[in-house]
Simulated assay, not measured.
Amino acid sequence: MDARSWTLRGRGRARRVADSTAMAAAARAGFAARGVIYVLVGVIALQIAFGGDGGGHQADRGGALDELAGRPFGSALLWAVGLALAGMALWQLSEAVFGGSGPGGSKLHERAAASFRCVFYGFVSYSVLSYAAGDKGSGSGASDRQTDDVTARVLEWPAGQLLVGAAGLAVVIAGLWICVRAVRRKFRQDLRTGAMSSGTRKAVEFLGVAGGVARGVVFAVAGVFALAAAVRHQPGKARGMDDTLRAFRDLPAGPWLLAAVAAGLAAFGLFSWCDARWRKV
């Protein structure tokens, strides 16, 4: 092999390393941004649990954006979060196209899941960047409005009840799957646990379990509301994140139950920051 070929191979290898490093940085920024949103949602929900109004914000992504916008340098923070989530979407796209890390990262179902997450984080990034650009329609209560609008529209379609019911059932199953995965600590296989001390590893596992269970419960309950909307043909029965969380408060011991879920969502936000530090990417 001549000197020119060696040079080209070296440049190609350096380019792949640079691309991999850039994608890892994008993923870690995305996890950090996701953590910010979940911590703020958890804090707002905790205030609502004990009779507060959440500072005038609703416990959803839009409410978190409203809260963030009110902070010093709020506009810059919104742009940073939106761009970081775009980085997360790009990383998920690379996982879908090239396969993820680990022995099972190239399996079809893993690639399909990465494709779904790419679309999801792309949408979330778009909503955050739209809000940062001045579109307040992505603000507090947006998840509830969007849920009502989409459910009402789909219910008007032929077989609309069946579609809404199937979507609700899928969300219930996804929520239960998230809970089971958290309890079984499946997230450990995605983390560089060897880089953690014993105490740090225990703290991260606690946050992963508590956060995953709370997130799964919220998903599952939201799915149940969607099923109710399908069965009764009433789009108002479907609920976004804020209305789903407030439903916990209406149960016996509701404030304490909502407080536990809120703390769990905040824990998931903290776990996302741990992902940003120790995730295998």
Rank of each mutant, 00 (worst) to 15 (best):
M1K: 07
R4Q: 12
S5V: 12
G10A: 07
R11N: 07
R11C: 03
R16M: 13
A18I: 09
A25T: 15
A27D: 10
R28T: 07
A29D: 10
A33D: 13
G35T: 04
L40C: 05
L40R: 12
V41M: 12
L46D: 14
A49S: 15
A49D: 09
F50P: 02
G52A: 11
A69H: 12
R71L: 14
S75E: 15
W79T: 06
A80L: 15
A84I: 12
A86P: 01
A86V: 06
A86D: 06
G87P: 02
G87F: 07
M88R: 15
Q92I: 01
E95C: 10
G104W: 04
G105P: 00
G105R: 00
H109G: 02
E110I: 00
R111A: 03
A114V: 06
F116V: 11
R117F: 08
R117T: 01
S130K: 14
Y131D: 05
A132V: 06
A132I: 05
K136L: 09
G137C: 06
G139S: 10
D144Q: 04
R145Y: 12
Q146H: 09
T147I: 09
R153E: 11
E156S: 14
G160L: 08
G168T: 08
L169D: 02
I173K: 03
G175S: 05
W177P: 00
I178K: 06
R185V: 11
R188P: 04
R192F: 12
G194P: 02
A195C: 09
G199P: 02
R201V: 07
K202F: 08
A203T: 11
E205I: 09
A210Y: 02
G212I: 02
A214C: 03
V217T: 10
V224T: 10
A230T: 05
K237H: 15
F248W: 14
R249M: 09
P252C: 05
A262I: 05
F268V: 02
L270C: 13
L270I: 13
S272Q: 08
C274H: 10
